[in-house]
Simulated scan of single mutants.
Amino acid sequence: MRHVIFDTETTGFEPREGHRLVEIGAVEMKHGGLTGRTFHVYVNPERDMPDGAYQVHKLSAEFLSDKPVFADPSVGQAFVEFVDDAVLIAHNASFDMNFIQFELEKAGLPKLDNEVVDTLKIAKRRFPGSPASLDALCNRFGIDLTAREKDGHGALLDSRLLAEVYIELTGGAQAGLAFEGANAAFGGQRIIVPPNPVRAAPRKALLTDAEKKAHETFIAEMENPLWRRVLN
């Protein structure tokens, strides 16, 4: 099974109001492990950069002015070819897909019809009432945010972080998976998950009292939840 975890940066929230993509980042995952293959491109939005958007990703109109437009084969078509038939994974996927599909249509390219997984929805189901931003999930799972805290948002960095979050959300890294090609993509370190990993000590509970209370409220609003019948 092949997955592509991706993220975008934009000039705003709605492409039909004149906002455009300015960055796309993506990483490839096969059989539950990152392969090291990545896609990354800056995009000339052919417009100004609102200050609010600049404060998030620090990409200025001047910096982007000599970058290719989405219709250039190195951007839109290249992203479509990288994605191919993979399952797409994004955080708040409707936002990213809205921009991708709009830009594809504007460039005269076929829209994507891939299966799409939204990690935001998964996180909200798993942790009802808790913060579900990428930062919050990284903190929950103990994923290092040093680079993000230093350099801010970036589509490729956020895709890599989201890949780690997705692995945790779906049960953790599978034993024995080698992260092929990691030398090039992850600073020369080859990452291998040892077979049958065993924790040195039980992992401490991550739920706060507020989260436990929110979960109890969530259960109370359900009609005859199965686990209540089992526990009682």
Rank of each mutant, 00 (worst) to 15 (best):
G154L: 00
L161E: 07
L156F: 15
D144M: 11
D158F: 06
I143L: 05
F218D: 12
E211M: 06
C138V: 05
L137M: 15
L231P: 13
G187H: 01
E180P: 04
E180T: 13
G154A: 01
L137W: 10
F141W: 05
G152R: 12
W227L: 05
K204I: 02
R190A: 11
E216P: 01
E216I: 08
F186I: 04
E221T: 05
L169A: 01
R190M: 12
I191H: 09
A220I: 01
R148A: 12
L162Y: 11
L157V: 10
F218G: 02
N232W: 07
H153S: 10
A214C: 15
A173T: 10
D209C: 11
R199D: 03
A163F: 08
R160Y: 09
G181E: 08
S133D: 14
E180R: 13
G152I: 00
R140W: 00
S159Q: 04
N183Q: 12
A136T: 03
N139Q: 12
S133M: 10
E223M: 06
K213E: 13
E168K: 10
A136W: 11
E180D: 14
R199Y: 12
A210K: 14
S133R: 02
F141T: 03
L169Y: 09
A200E: 12
L157H: 03
L161N: 03
F179L: 06
L226A: 11
P197Y: 01
G181L: 11
K204Y: 04
T217N: 15
A178T: 07
L206I: 11
L177N: 07
L162N: 07
P202Q: 00
H153C: 10
E223A: 14
